[in-house]
Amino acid sequence: MSQFQEKTQIIRFEQLSSDIVRLTLDSPDIASRAKPGQFVMVKAGEGRDPLLRRPFSISQTSNERHFQILFKVVGSGTSILAHYRVGEYLSVLGPLGNGYQVDCDDDNCLVGGGMGIAPLLFLGKWLVRVCPQNPPLVVIGARTAAELSPLVKDFEELGLRVHTATDDGSLGHHGFVIDVLKTINLGSSSRMHVCGPYPMMAAMHLFCKERGLSCQVSMETHMACGMGACLGCIVPSRKGVYAHACSDGPVFDAKELVWKVK
């Protein structure tokens, strides 16, 4: 597998909502090799504070040359990244991690919450291309319509039908994505590709377990290196005690993990 450490130029900057930004980066090396579910490690600023790179899912690629990251401003690193402008360069490491496993014979279902929707956009685009006869079902949720609408539009541009849920009811179902899924008749060959906040993924694991459905989740952890060197990014696993989110994941079969249900 090949990974790259590159200075990539920002060729597009989009402010999708008050605190959500999308950057399009120019990197043929990364864009042409990336698979849905993989991520990059990005250095915010040149200085030593913040020191470590930050992980972001690759949320789309185009022309084998550009890729996008989509992020919400939550702290020091993301607020610095939100101040970059077109033409400036960002140091990026990637593509990293394993990515989602896809099979066109499955009824693929993309289930995302909040920024967890980022990698699913890439996966949706991939599935539309690779499995044109069997387009995926998309169920995504966020806090409010302002956060969700721009992403719904992206899926719709792919020709996909999108089911939505928001915490405040401002778009789609008032509540959780899992409530929406419960109203859909899911075939036994459904495969869930999930990314979102931990409680949502834990609930999806139970949902799929009860129905005997396959469930892949993308795990978020604190990462220092993103490439299997620091051993910081562990998730409790049934295979051995811990798995490493950056090198064994970030995508796991939900059954292989140990879930903490609150």
Binding site: T221, H222, M223, A224, C230, L231, G232, C233, I234, V235, P236, G240, V241, Y242
Partner: peptide, 8 residues
């Protein structure tokens, strides 16, 4: 096995 998360 090492310590539980978060580790860093």
């Amino acid at each position: 096995a090492g310590n539980p998360p978060p580790r860093i």
